[in-house]
Design a binder for these strands. Structure first.
Length: 82
DNA sequence: CGTATGACGTGCA
DNA sequence: GTGCACGCCATAC
């Protein structure tokens, strides 16, 4: 179980309509100061099973997954309407 | 093994 | 509220 695995696990556990900040994910993953690595890992592991679009900045703004997940914003809205 | 990078966060001006 | 700089961690090369 590596930090990356923990991150994926935590992100995958994010319920629909809910969003977590990179820091929060890092905390849940067990490395409160590794929010940097969280984004790095997710970026290199753009796994479709990982709702990275649910991981946002602590500012409430979307992260850099805009690479092709900009459409996910609509997904978030849809999930919000659960 | 060491260096560089990155989808961040916080502090200060 | 905005902009700049620093610090932190894990991964990739």
């Amino acid at each position: 179980m590596t930090f990356a695995d923990n991150v994926f696990k935590v992100v995958a556990k994010i319920p629909r309509g809910k969003t977590l900040s990179y820091k929060k994910v890092a905390v849940l993953a067990g490395r409160p100061k590794a929010y940097r690595a969280v984004g790095n890992i997710l970026n290199k592991n753009h796994d479709p099973k990982i709702p990275c679009h649910r991981v946002i900045r602590c500012n409430g703004q979307l992260g850099g997954f805009n690479r092709g997940a900009a459409q996910k914003k609509k997904l978030l809205k849809q999930e919000k309407t659960i």
